[in-house]
């Protein structure tokens, strides 16, 4: 499958995504080579806060103006069965009328941090395929889910007025990564209170951006125009400040890092665990096995090896 061909229709894009999810590095690399560096809006926040509904409403308005929009909805893989229920599409029904919208649901594949190893590949395919903008909805597990910052150009954090006391707000990791904070479900509680509380805590980002905070009622379309305006402002900010190129480069490097991580995981566990167990059974020394794993991973003991040999009394012959 050739990338130019992939771009030609919905079905081929969908197939290409399956390919990279299946570990086809050829297509993944071809896509990576051809990315144009489009905006990726990462949307994160606790489960049920209204991420999918908000994306649907925002994308609706943008799609109506003719923008080509792709949406990726991530849901967790069950650690017990390896299966998943992917339900973000339920809230996006109204986008079915647009030919210029593409939606895909993916599972975390059991990886922590809110995304699967191949999520960057999927983003790259959609980028290369000619979309103008990507929304990436991550698993709403909350505080330590910050992987999204490595591939998004703008991060929107969705909060709800009823959730979280001050303590929780202060320790939440998402506060440091958000460019835009939306207090959704403003119809269900004291949204203005929450905004006040948040304004006290939010600080200027390292790049000079002052996080924006606003409220919305996604189900009735309230606050959507304000969110679109804020997204636009941030988009322009990172271009003007020259940060956008850096973010795109980060995405490219992060993509490659995921290959490496997956490879390491395969070497250490999936492919070889049985082999190691058998070797130990056959009486092989554990330290030998560790050396071999290190070697296969390309880790060089370098100086450490010499030091080990020089230090007396460490026992054994050393690596």
């Amino acid at each position: 499958m050739n990338i130019d061909e992939i771009m030609s229709d919905r079905k081929k894009i969908a197939k290409a995504i399956s390919e990279v999810e299946n570990g086809n590095t050829l297509i993944a690399t071809e896509a990576l080579r051809r990315i144009r560096g489009i905006d990726v809006i990462g949307v994160t926040g606790v489960p049920g806060s209204g991420k999918s509904t908000l994306i649907s409403k925002i994308a609706y308005k943008m799609a109506k103006e003719g923008k080509k929009i792709a949406i990726i909805g991530i849901d967790p893989t069950s650690p017990f069965s390896g299966g998943a229920v992917l339900g973000d599409r339920i809230r996006m029904k109204e986008l079915n009328r647009f030919d210029n919208v593409f939606i895909r649901s993916i599972s975390t594949g059991g990886k922590l941090g809110g995304m699967s190893y191949h999520t960057p590949d999927v983003i790259n395919i959609l980028d290369a395929a000619g979309f103008d903008l990507i929304f990436l909805e991550t698993v709403g597990t909350g505080q330590d889910e910050v992987d999204v910052m490595n591939i998004a150009t703008t991060i929107m954090v969705v909060l709800v007025p009823t959730l979280g006391d001050e303590v929780q707000v202060i320790k939440a990791g998402q506060l440091e990564i958000g460019d835009i904070f939306v207090v959704n479900k403003a119809d269900q509680g004291a949204a203005d209170e929450k905004i006040k509380e948040m304004t006290l805590i939010l600080k200027e980002r390292k790049d000079g951006w002052i996080p924006k905070i606003m409220k919305s009622v996604a189900v009735t379309n309230q606050g959507i125009d304000e969110i679109i305006r804020a997204l636009d402002e941030h988009k322009n900010f990172i271009i003007e400040k020259g940060i956008k190129n850096k973010k795109i480069m980060e995405r490219m490097l992060y993509t490659i890092k995921q290959y490496a991580l997956e490879r390491i995981e395969n070497i250490m566990y999936n492919e070889n665990i049985e082999k190691y167990i058998n070797q130990i059974k056959d009486g092989k020394d554990i330290s030998r096995i560790i050396d071999e794993i290190m070697l296969e991973m390309g880790v060089n003991y370098g100086k450490g090896r010499e030091i080990y040999r020089k230090v007396e009394g460490m026992g054994g012959e050393g690596p």
């Binding site: 390896g82 299966g83 339900g87 599409r89 029904k93 079915n96 649901s105 599972s107």
Partner: peptide, 24 residues
């Protein structure tokens, strides 16, 4: 152990086919 994409109620046949294609 399956991955299930649930799209909710009130789907047209066109909606269903579109989801099936996009989700492969």
């Amino acid at each position: 152990g399956f991955e299930v994409i649930y799209t909710g109620i009130h789907q047209t046949a066109e909606d269903i086919i579109r989801s099936a294609i996009e989700e492969d």
